[in-house]
């Protein structure tokens, strides 16, 4: 008998700044890489997706109108919080089957990537905005604006870094998101909700669900209140399903199959721009 019985963590979802269970009450067993059960995760349903999208939508106005500086500060704060919980996340990744060295590296890369995107919030509008020299007597400028609610569908290629690498550019640009955590290894993603909770990220800006992809991505990519989908699942049928669903409401879709999430090429502002609309404003010039 051990001296002390470990208190096991119940993994729930992260929606609207809270940690609700799936409305269905169902869970599914999560195994580590050796096939041993390490926890149970919520098996979210269509209704959970619906609720999360609604919650995200209500958070959009507030988040997108935060100043760029403020969004940058909050992203930086997330990184700080994650740094503070480095050990927790490293252990959790180890539990899922990563080697300690790899687990630590994944957490550190996650922190650095957050900081990378934190720094972009008040720069990408400068790099990608334009003042357009129109021929008439008008002042004309174009600037990027958040597209709205983004559904993020993660494959099983990573536990934490894929979430960070997709979520960070999406929210850095003022969007809100509903994330479907990696089906097989959702625990770190779910735990990341705790970091968000502690980091001044307004509730609803990032919503994280776990479950069986096949049961939720149809609803998420079809939902009329979702403006864009970022999909990392490199499967022709999944891609087609998402694309077809997207056409129902002319959603923007970004398929991002990634071989190695540690690849530095994922650190670029075009991932922000993929979820931005360009707004062009005209005004006459005259006394």
């Amino acid at each position: 008998m051990p001296d002390r019985i470990e208190v096991l963590k119940t993994y729930k979802t992260y929606v609207g700044g809270n940690f609700p269970r799936s409305e269905s009450g169902r869970t599914y067993p999560v195994n580590n890489r050796d096939g041993e059960n390490i926890a149970n995760a919520c098996r979210c349903t269509r209704k959970d997706v619906r609720d999360a999208v609604g919650t995200a939508r209500s958070a959009f106005g507030g988040w997108s109108s935060r100043s760029a500086y403020n969004r940058g500060q909050i992203l930086y704060r997330i990184a700080e919080m994650l740094e503070g919980r480095k050990d927790q996340f490293t252990e959790e990744l180890e539990k899922a089957g990563l080697k300690r060295k790899d687990a630590l590296r994944e957490v550190e890369l996650s922190i650095d990537r957050l900081i990378y995107f934190a720094g972009w919030t008040d720069k990408y509008p400068q790099v990608f905005g334009t003042v357009n020299p129109v021929a008439s007597s008008h002042f004309n400028f174009s600037s990027p604006e958040a597209t709205g609610v983004v559904g993020i569908i993660l494959d099983d290629s990573s536990n934490l870094l894929s979430l960070i690498s997709t979520m960070a550019p999406v929210i850095a640009g003022g969007n809100v998101c509903v994330v479907i955590a990696p089906e097989k290894q959702p625990l770190s993603a779910i735990s990341f909700g705790e970091v968000l909770h502690a980091s001044d990220v307004p509730g609803g800006v990032v919503n994280i669900l776990s479950g069986f992809r096949d049961e939720v991505i149809d609803t998420l990519s079809g939902h009329m209140n979702v403006n864009a989908v970022l999909n990392t699942v490199d499967n022709p049928e999944v891609r087609k399903l998402i694309d077809e669903n997207a056409s129902i409401s002319v959603k923007r879709v970004k398929h991002l199959p990634v071989e190695s999430w540690s690849d530095e090429s994922l650190e670029n502002p075009y991932l922000i721009i993929d979820f931005q609309e360009t707004k062009t404003t005209w005004h006459p010039v005259g006394v």
């Binding site: 334009t130 357009n132 020299p133 129109v134 021929a135 008439s136 008008h138 004309n140 174009s142 360009t278 062009t280 005209w282 005004h283 006459p284």
Partner: peptide
């Protein structure tokens, strides 16, 4: 304060 203006430089 204007409407339906178009220009090649304007997205």
């Amino acid at each position: 304060n204007t409407y339906n203006k178009f220009d090649p430089t304007s997205p």
